[in-house]
């Protein structure tokens, strides 16, 4: 691969800013007060300037809390729009956090993360669609709780199983660059 300049990493921060703006608009359109929007704005600024900070997590938590308390409903437009935005914010902040100022990005570097983003969104959409067609009042609550817990448990199990696999590569500590 020949380095030919690529695109400036500041564009990734621009994407982060646009995602934060979209989250703010979503909150404002779904009953968030002025104070809440202002806090979201401050957190958005922190997300753009300091992506390796708790600001993205706080913004995601704030957005989730606002939409839950607004009574939009689980399948409201506000929630459905927020699902990919939250994921995109997480991804953009994760990549931006490892890059110093003035860095440049080869567009090919985004191929795998975007493919995984699409797979994730597809699976979440499937979950939402399944939840939409499942009758709301006929499933016993205890069963719902058990189902949701099993999802979380499965996720943890995948992590545990995967991480406990012995490493296949040489475990020698990296020496100094040749």
């Amino acid at each position: 691969m020949i380095i030919d300049g690529g695109v400036p990493a500041s564009r990734l921060r621009t994407v982060t800013a646009l995602v934060c703006l979209a989250i703010g608009v979503d909150l404002a359109l779904h009953g968030a007060g002025t104070f809440t929007v202002a806090v979201a704005g401050l957190l958005s600024v922190a997300c753009v300037l300091v992506p390796a900070s708790p600001a993205p997590l706080l913004l995601i938590g704030l957005a989730a809390a606002v939409l839950t308390s607004s009574g939009t409903g689980a399948f409201g437009l506000g929630v459905l729009v927020l699902i990919p935005l939250v994921h995109l914010l997480h991804l953009c902040c994760a990549i931006t956090a490892v890059l110093p100022k003035g860095a440049r990005i080869a567009p090919a570097a985004f191929r795998s993360p975007l493919r995984r983003f699409a797979v994730t969104q597809l699976s979440v959409t499937m979950i939402v669609l399944i939840a939409m067609i499942v009758p709301a009042g006929r499933t016993p609550p205890i069963l719902e709780v058990a189902a949701l817990l099993s999802i979380a448990g499965m996720a943890l199990a995948v992590i545990v199983l995967d991480r406990s696999r012995p490493p296949s590569r040489d475990e020698s500590h990296p020496a100094e660059m040749a």
Binding site: I60, L67, L82, H87, F117, Q121, V124, I127
Partner: peptide
């Protein structure tokens, strides 16, 4: 729904 993408990814 909001937590699922973070967890799944």
């Amino acid at each position: 729904f909001l937590g699922a993408p973070l967890l799944v990814s």
